[in-house]
Amino acid sequence: MARVAFLGLGVMGFPMAGHLAAAGHEVTVWNRSPAKAEAWAARHKGRVAATAREAAEGAEFVMACVGNDDDLRQVCLGEAGAFAGMGKGAVFVDHTTVSAAVTRQLSALAVEAGLGFVDAPVSGGQAGAESGQLSVMCGGTQDDYARAESVIAAYAKICKLMGPSGAGQLAKMCNQIAIAGLVQGLSESLHFAEKAGLSIPEVVEVISQGAAGSWQMQNRHQTMAENHFDFGFAVDWMRKDLGICLATADETGASLPVTALVDQFYKEVQAMGGGRWDTSSLIARLRR
């Protein structure tokens, strides 16, 4: 078992840190709003730290799951940042979905300080975090990854090294690109079924057994039919992720016409007041 710090206790980080404690790791948590950290400690066995640096002191692994590039920089750098508290040889594991550019920048700084660094964004949403069944795509050195893999296993159903620093973030972009087009297609399919006078449950029962079947269809068709979206991965976060995808596509020369279009559809959902709705809320704009 390892000494682990977990930074960021949102809808993903809270249960992920809980799985680490349940697996027997010695866990110290930190969160920007201390109340969440105290709530976590009341439910799980572990210690609360006042700063990211304090949480990282003495930890073999420091896991982070925060909001965006700027949040990650603040958590890592500065006098109160995690890097300042980590001992040489400790490994920083970043579960935040951020740009590959900030990942490479922070990885280089970690190496200069004698630290390991693994970018390890996750897929599976809140449900996957709570059940410990996340897909984790990683970037970094083989040695750093090999050390971190057994700790990440506490909340992963699959964990894979995709390449050097930044490769995990690039793989997560592939994930979000695939989801964006899929959810739009599912939204249009269910909307068409409604307009055609068909039963959504019956349509899904049939088509989900063929080539149209997907996780989104299986897990979201009922709530989409009921116009129920106050759960899951928020539209605001999806737009953040798609913005990263589109910016990276400009850098690499990739063409993402469907992703760019769906990003604008999510912008319309935000304008409808749905920034915190689940990403399956794309169907709501079709029903207006």
Rank of each mutant, 00 (worst) to 15 (best):
S99H: 01
Q142A: 14
A21R: 00
A52T: 03
A156V: 04
G163D: 02
S189Y: 14
G274E: 00
V93M: 07
G13M: 03
G116M: 07
A129T: 02
A84E: 09
T51P: 12
Y145S: 00
I244S: 03
A100W: 03
P34D: 07
S199G: 05
M12H: 07
K240C: 04
E130P: 00
T252F: 14
A2R: 08
G13C: 03
Q264R: 02
V136C: 02
H19P: 03
M162V: 13
T96N: 05
V91A: 00
T248H: 05
G13A: 06
C65P: 07
F229Q: 03
F6H: 03
V75E: 09
A196V: 13
G166T: 03
I283T: 11
G85P: 06
D71H: 07
A247G: 08
M137V: 15
S189E: 03
I179N: 11
Q270V: 15
T28Y: 12
T96M: 01
A22L: 13
A21H: 07
M1N: 05
Q169R: 11
M238R: 03
A80W: 07
A52G: 01
H191R: 12
A271D: 05
V29A: 00
Q264I: 10
A234T: 01
L7V: 09
S280Q: 00
S189T: 14
T103P: 10
A42C: 10
A82W: 04
F117Y: 13
A146V: 07
I179R: 10
V269W: 01
G275R: 00
S280R: 11
F231A: 13
G67D: 11
A35N: 14
E38G: 08
A39W: 04
L72T: 05
D250T: 14
R288M: 14
R288F: 12
K157R: 11
V183Q: 03
G140I: 08
A17E: 07
D230I: 00
G10M: 04
E251G: 09
N31S: 10
S199N: 12
V136K: 03
G87T: 01
R73K: 12
G116D: 01
G166L: 07
A171S: 14
P15E: 09
T28W: 09
R147N: 10
V262D: 02
G253D: 02
A42F: 14
K36Y: 12
F231R: 11
C174E: 06
T223D: 04
A41G: 01
E57T: 13
V204S: 03
S150F: 14
V62A: 11
L109E: 14
H191N: 13
M137F: 06
G10Y: 04
R47A: 07
G116H: 00
G8F: 01
Q209I: 12
T103G: 12
S99F: 11
A21E: 02
